[in-house]
Design a protein around this nucleic acid. Structure first.
Length: 646
RNA sequence: GCCGUUGUAGCUCAGUGGUAGAGCACUUCCUUGGUAAGGAAGAGGUCGUGAGUUCAAUUCUCAUCAACGGCUCCA
């Protein structure tokens, strides 16, 4: 007999070799029908795998993340079975479940075959038929030799490659119906659980993620235990599309692109420019308060500067090619730091000048690969909320921490709470290739950054091989509505460029020392930040950012003069206000203004004119009663000043 | 850059081997209307660009540019 401990602490006795599914059945048949997998002593297992020793057991259903992941993993196998049935002879690489977007994919070498999105419906149909058969996922342990023989016979170089890293005792195969795959598992009990399937798209993906390798065909899909859940998911996807910043950016007149100007080159329309100016105002206020000095530097520089900085060898490919003038090569800058270093170097510095903080909304140009461009999130001309802090080692912790506090201050203003702080570290095997070859300095600065994060009590994740070439950094990662991950803001340590630029300050004992540099951009770039804000607020920007804050809507043209008088009064109070004097009915004016997401509407007619008042309507909420113009102005002036988010 | 898809009016989209259509937006007129679309008329497109096939191409083929979905990349 073995003792099974359930999550509530209850202990039960079972025969050795009992499965989690049988245990579920002993609790209730209804529960057993929902069990997808089991967590045995913290490890996810097949629900049908015999348990041989005492164990802590948690039954996993659709309500558990691991239950879903197992479900999608099994769905990937089901898709592979359908693909193999329809296209015999294809070879499979890997087919994992994924969280973002939800579902699964399988990478497949189709040989000379091509499939397009039209074939997906057909594949789905085959999957449904196979699912209905309710075939069990059967686990089988194999020796390495058996496994190698199996795939050698199939001529499957991909699975043989996977096997190379595995040894006897850790090789398992799973079979469902006619499909057998090398797989660590676990899987759901049988295909009958998969009731709703949607293959979403088809894409190329390099083998092992390396662009030098062959490109395989990746099919993405998602599946659910019921049609209802699939339908709900599809509705959710539709909703997400509505807040896509590219759609909102067009509807709200924020920005535009033009073929004649070039891909990834954003032109900010008047409405978008208002947002930019408000953000800059915020940044300037905040930075002034934090002791930064503002500078302005050119968008280009000579080649020699980027050789000094060390950027050119790393990033020449993603810089616009140089232009030649009087025998000199000039580059459009793709970063502001070298210019700022030159500002530091312009006058001799003493320890009394440190920390020396220079800020600039710097325009930079990056020749991003064409396939990478994405709305406002990934562009070729960007405006960075940039600043560089030159400080001593002793000052570093306070400075770095102050920058982090600035992030948090901003995030509070914008109500940003769904982000991941990422401590981005170097990868020791890429020293001298991707990272400056200073193993000791890397170790030292990484520890410094980690300590700051710990001291601030900020939750974060550590990731290898994401550092800048000159030092470790903290990135703030966010997701766009369609699930793509982006770095919104960044705070970086640089122990390298100070020396390459021979930056120095005089210490109290009259020695020269190289400062540490912090690169920081808490508001990222205008492009990405506004793209993010549009999605974050679903286009309903808070009052202080709204391009048009108030729209005055006269009931008929008899009241246009009064509307204009009200508007003038608001404008004098620095409120962005417009009058809708079109020959339209009030319902139409309201509708159009609502769609443009203007925060406040002031409706004026006979009544308001006589009483010298306005009828306030709040965007998305409706009628908010009649008020005097001065009272209304005073109220929203406070709302704007406080940069309220609601 | 790579794989795949798409490209028709300002926007959203129909359609065709015989040089194009809808709704919204726009202009004018009627209407002067009280909290999410009043009515009528009009104007607007060398069907992304270039080449080829054809008596004839927006439609078929190729190239190219751009956008979209991924992959790779992201100082």
């Amino acid at each position: 007999m073995i003792t099974i401990t359930l999550p509530d602490g209850a202990k039960r006795q079972y025969e050795e070799g009992t499965t989690a599914l049988e245990i579920a059945k002993s609790i209730s048949e209804g529960l057993a029908r929902k069990v997808l997998a089991a967590e045995i002593n913290g490890e996810v297992w097949d629900a049908t795998r015999p348990i041989k020793d005492d164990a802590a057991l948690k039954l996993l259903t659709w309500n558990d993340k691991d239950g879903q992941m197992t479900f999608w993993h099994s769905s990937a196998h089901l898709m592979a079975e359908a693909v193999e049935q329809k296209y015999p002879g294809v070879k499979f690489w890997v087919g994992p479940p994924i969280e973002n977007p939800r579902g699964f994919y399988y990478d497949i070498d189709l040989g000379d075959r091509k499939i397009s999105e039209e074939d997906l419906a057909d594949l789905e149909k085959t999957m449904r038929e196979l699912a209905k058969q309710g075939n069990a996922y059967v686990r089988k342990e194999m020796s390495k030799k058996e496994a190698v023989d199996f795939f050698s016979e199939k001529g499957d170089e991909y699975k043989l490659d996977l096997l190379q890293k595995l040894s006897d005792g850790e090789i398992t195969f799973y079979t469902q119906g006619n499909f057998t795959d090398l797989c660590r598992g676990p899987h759901i009990p049988d295909t009958g659980f998969i009731k709703a399937i949607k293959l979403t798209n088809i894409a190329g993906a390099y083998w092992k993620g390396d662009e030098k390798n062959k490109q395989l065909t990746r099919i993405y899909g998602v599946s659910f235990p019921s049609q209802k859940e699939l339908d709900e998911y599809l509705v959710l996807l539709e909703e997400a599309k509505k807040r896509d910043h590219r759609k909102l950016g067009k509807e709200l007149g924020i920005y535009t692109l033009d073929d004649d100007v070039g891909p990834g080159l954003i032109m900010w329309l008047p409405n978008g420019t208002v947002i930019i100016e408000e953000l800059e105002k915020l940044a300037k206020e905040t930075e002034l308060e934090a002791g930064y000095k503002r500078v302005v530097t050119p968008h280009i520089a000579k080649e020699s500067m980027y050789l000094t900085s060390g950027h050119l060898p790393y990033y020449a490919d993603s810089m616009y090619p140089p232009m030649e003038m009087e025998g000199e090569k000039y580059y459009l800058r793709s970063m502001n730091c070298p210019h700022h270093h030159k500002i530091f170097a312009a006058e001799p510095k003493s320890y009394r000048d440190l920390p020396y903080r220079v800020a600039e909304y710097g325009t930079v140009y990056r020749y991003e690969q064409s396939g990478e461009l994405f709305g406002l999130m990934r562009v070729r001309c960007l405006h960075m909320n940039d600043a560089h802090i030159y400080c001593t080692k002793e000052q570093f912790n306070d400075e770095f921490r102050a920058v982090n506090d600035m992030y948090l201050k901003y995030f509070k203003i914008f109500g940003i709470d769904k982000y991941v702080m990422r401590l981005s570290l170097h990868s020791p095997d890429k020293l001298g290739i991707k990272y400056v070859n200073e193993p000791e300095l890397w170790k030292e600065t990484e520890t410094m950054v980690r300590n700051v994060l710990r001291a601030s009590d900020i939750p974060y994740v550590e990731v290898q091989d994401e550092a800048a070439f000159y030092g470790p950094k903290i990135d703030v990662q966010i997701y766009s509505v369609i699930g793509r991950e982006f770095t919104l803001a960044t705070n970086q340590v640089d122990f390298s460029q100070g020396r390459s630029f021979k930056l120095q300050y005089t210490t109290p004992d009259n020695q020269t020392e190289t400062p540490l540099i912090i690169h920081r951009a808490p508001l990222g770039t205008h492009e990405r930040f506004i793209g993010f804000l549009l999605e974050h607020y679903a286009g309903k920007l808070p009052l202080w950012l709204a391009p048009v804050q108030v729209k005055v809507l006269p009931i008929s043209d008899k009241f246009t003069d009064y509307a204009k008088a009200v508007s003038e009064k608001l404008k004098k109070a620095d409120i962005r206000c417009e009058v809708d004097d079109r020959n339209e009915k009030i319902g139409k004016k309201i509708r159009d203004t609502e769609l443009m997401k203007v925060p406040y509407m002031l409706i004026v007619g006979e009544k308001e004119l006589n009483e010298n008042k306005v009828a306030v309507r709040v965007q998305g909420k409706g009628d908010a009663g009649v008020k005097g113009v001065d009272e209304f102005t005073a109220e929203i002036t406070v709302e704007i000043k406080e940069r309220r988010s609601v």
